[in-house]
Design a protein around this nucleic acid. Structure first.
Length: 491
RNA sequence: GGUCCCAUCGUCUAGAGGCCUAGGACACAUCCCUUUCACGGAUGCGACAGGGGUUCAAAUCCCCUUGGGACUACCA
């Protein structure tokens, strides 16, 4: 069997979209599962919409997700170059081949003429199909138009190709995920393959590149289904082997429209900036359309690859909801190596003076704060009371947990105990804290919870947060005393 | 408008004619655990879009309707 080769071919007209990331993922998984090669190709034939910034973003995002390619613009490979704009010299040759074989023809129509045809079609409520008026131009007519300064585009003749390779105008192909798909080719207009400026259009460039790069399986979004029929005809006209195609359902926003900016983040890099872990992102996105055979949803890229079968992928669209992503991100945050997590957390701690803490203390802070959070950016607020001298009280906390007589008594007693606490020993601190709350429970019937709320409020300004032992230890005796005294005095 | 694709809990999905009084995960609710918030555990709520067929038997096959999506460029 010939080698399995797949590709991801983003166009750098924006940052790497989460949908493109999923397509890349499924290609990657298919390649890994089948010992194939996964190649990256940049489709930048439209210079107007391309920018280096986007190319960098695509590279960085793909790498961050762990979707490393075997061949691509940066790593090279046997079938390069892997950037379409560097391949401009090869497309005209194949266009010429098609011209010679009679599967293509020059078209001198102006945009105005084409526009008129389209208007006519919509007026008659018919599908727009190019009139083919340039198909049978004589050499003299062409020469005349050229003399007028008109530059021709090259169009592909659908009908000629269909008749040459298919008995029926309705052509079929067996989609890897959707099964039998068909289209009446008489409804497809003779589309442009080479623009009048000499550059190829998408539908032509992909075929040439996929053919030359020996791509065996093309896995992409279902928005490409209609292109597939055009592309199959081109492969055939070129005398090339037609690859297998698989079309994935789309990712939709909760309102069932296309996922766009107004729904929040769309680029992988934006998710990362918000505090999503790339491991969680890729795991989550894999679950959109694919499901693990053992029901275990949290899985690494490698584990998913082992279990992946393209024909088991769902053929319907799926909606991108944050609930499960958030849950999953929280799971990854909870399980991540603490040193690694601390490193990832740093960008979200910009507003604090990190030199106040040692690396070990910072790790301790992150460790004891990571549990309830869902995105890394939650840390910014959750960690606030570990920094600076003073704290800010959350709404209502002071009134409820500091300003009452009971609270004041608790604080005074706590203050009196402080000198006996061992601030360098977290374990000991836990024991002492336990004794402390037992004292109030046994003597005054105050719930341990409430006792701790008061101390916590005085020290952090909130009634929830990290483990109290950790708070005491990291803050240190001096700061603890200061904050407790302040809570007592401000009464 | 035309063409194509899709259709199981709110969401992601399991389900390849009998294993389905439809399973899991997220979310939600209640309870348990607990120094807080969480985590974890338990329980609950909750779906085969509708209608016709085919079959002894249909969530699974076929048709229609409805709904959603995609495409309809000298963009990719």
């Amino acid at each position: 069997m010939e080698e399995i080769r797949v590709r991801i071919a983003p166009s750098p007209s924006g940052n790497l979209h989460i949908g493109t990331a999923r397509t890349a993922l499924f290609n990657y998984l298919f390649a890994k599962k089948n010992n194939g090669k996964y190649v990256l190709r940049i489709e930048d034939t439209d210079a107007e919409r391309t920018s280096q910034e986007y190319i960098d973003n695509i590279f960085d995002s793909l790498k961050a997700l762990g979707l490393n390619w075997d061949e691509g613009p940066d790593v090279g490979g046997e079938y390069g170059p892997y950037t379409q704009s560097e391949r401009f010299d090869i497309y005209p040759k194949y266009a010429q081949m098609l011209l010679d074989k009679g599967f293509a023809y020059e078209c001198f129509c102006t945009p105005e003429e084409l526009e008129a045809e389209k208007e006519e079609a919509t007026k008659n409520k018919k599908a727009y199909v190019y009139s083919k008026k340039c198909q049978n131009l004589t050499e003299e007519e062409k020469a005349k138009l050229r003399a007028e300064g008109r530059k021709p585009a090259i169009r592909f003749s659908i009908e000629k190709a269909q008749k040459a390779f298919h008995n029926n105008p309705v052509i079929h192909f067996d989609d890897l995920v959707k099964g039998d798909l068909h289209q009446d080719t008489s409804l497809i207009g003779d589309f442009v393959i080479m623009k009048s400026n000499g550059t190829p259009t998408y539908n032509f460039a992909v075929v040439i590149d996929d053919m030359l790069m020996k791509i065996s399986h093309i896995i992409r979004g279902e928005d490409h289904i209609s292109n597939t029929f055009k592309q199959i005809l081109i492969y055939e006209a070129l005398g090339a082997e037609v690859p297998k195609f698989g079309h994935l359902g789309m990712i939709l926003a909760p309102d069932r429209s296309k996922l766009s900016k107004r729904h929040g983040a769309t680029a992988v890099s934006e998710f990362v900036e918000k505090g999503y872990l790339t491991e969680a992102l890729i795991n989550f996105v894999a679950l959109l359309g694919w499901s693990p055979s053992d029901g275990q949803e949290i899985k690494s890229l490698d584990e998913i690859a082992q279990d992946f079968r393209i024909n088991e992928v769902s053929s319907s669209n799926s909606i991108f909801e944050y609930d499960k992503l958030n849950w999953m991100n929280g799971q990854y945050i909870k399980k991540m190596d603490i040193k690694e997590l601390t490193q990832l957390a740093k960008p979200f701690l910009n507003k604090y003076d990190l030199t106040e803490l040692t690396q070990a203390q910072l790790e301790k802070v992150i460790e004891s704060t990571r549990e309830p959070i869902t995105v890394l950016s939650d840390l910014t607020n959750d960690v606030a009371y570990f920094f600076g001298k003073d704290i800010e009280f959350e709404e209502g906390v002071k009134e409820k947990n500091i300003d009452t007589e009971q609270a004041q008594n608790i604080l005074k007693y706590f203050d009196s105990q402080l000198d006996s606490y061992d601030f360098n020993n977290e374990e000991k601190l836990h024991e002492q804290l336990a004794e402390f709350r037992t004292y109030f429970k046994e003597n005054f019937g105050i719930k341990p919870k409430e006792t701790m709320w008061t101390v916590r409020a005085a020290l952090t300004g909130r009634t929830h947060g990290a483990d109290m032992g950790v708070i005491l230890e990291v803050l240190g005796k001096e700061k603890v005393k200061y904050r407790i005294q302040k809570a007592i005095n401000c009464k």
